[in-house]
Simulated scan of single mutants.
Amino acid sequence: MGYKLKVEEFNKGLQELSKKYKIYAPKVFEGQGKFSDTDIVRYGEVSKIEEIEFNKKSNFSYKEVLLPITQTLFFFTEEEIKEPNVDEKSILIFLRSCDMHSLRRIDDIYLRNKFEDSYYKKLREKAKFVLIGCEKSFENCFCVSMGTNKTDEYNVYVKQEGNEVYLDIKDEEFESLFNNLDREPLEVIPDFALDNKIKVNIPDNLDLNIVKSKVWDEYSERCIACGRCNFVCPTCTCFTMQDLFYKDNGKVGERRRVWASCQVDGYTDMAGGHSFRKEKGQRMRFKVLHKIYDYEKRWGYHMCVGCGRCDDACPEYISFSNCVKKLEKAMDEVK
Rank of each mutant, 00 (worst) to 15 (best):
A25Q: 03
A260C: 10
P190D: 12
I109V: 15
L131T: 05
I69Q: 12
V305S: 08
K335F: 04
K212Q: 12
I40F: 04
T70W: 14
F115S: 13
E161D: 14
E139G: 08
C262F: 05
D248P: 01
T240N: 14
E184A: 02
F60Q: 12
T38L: 01
I202N: 09
K159L: 13
R112P: 02
Y301Q: 15
D195V: 14
V215Y: 04
D294L: 07
K22G: 03
R104N: 15
G250N: 15
E79G: 07
K214W: 04
A313M: 10
E88M: 11
I40M: 09
R298G: 07
Y120T: 12
I132P: 02
E153W: 02
G227F: 03
K27Q: 13
Y21N: 06
E221T: 05
R96D: 06
A271Y: 07
P203I: 08
L327G: 05
Y301K: 15
K48A: 10
D191Q: 05
E88W: 09
L66G: 07
C307I: 04
A313Y: 07
Y154S: 01
Q263S: 10
R183I: 01
N179K: 14
F60S: 12
Q32W: 06
K63E: 08
E296R: 10
D204K: 15
S47K: 14
N155V: 05
A330L: 10
R124T: 08
L194M: 13
E333A: 10
N196M: 03
R298M: 08
V7K: 14
D182L: 10
P84I: 07
L103T: 12
Y24G: 01
E51W: 02
C323A: 12
M100Q: 13
P190C: 07
T70E: 15
N196K: 02
S61A: 13
I52L: 02
C98T: 11
V211M: 09
E51M: 03
P203M: 08
N85A: 11
K291C: 03
Y246K: 13
I189N: 11
L289S: 06
D248N: 14
P185R: 01
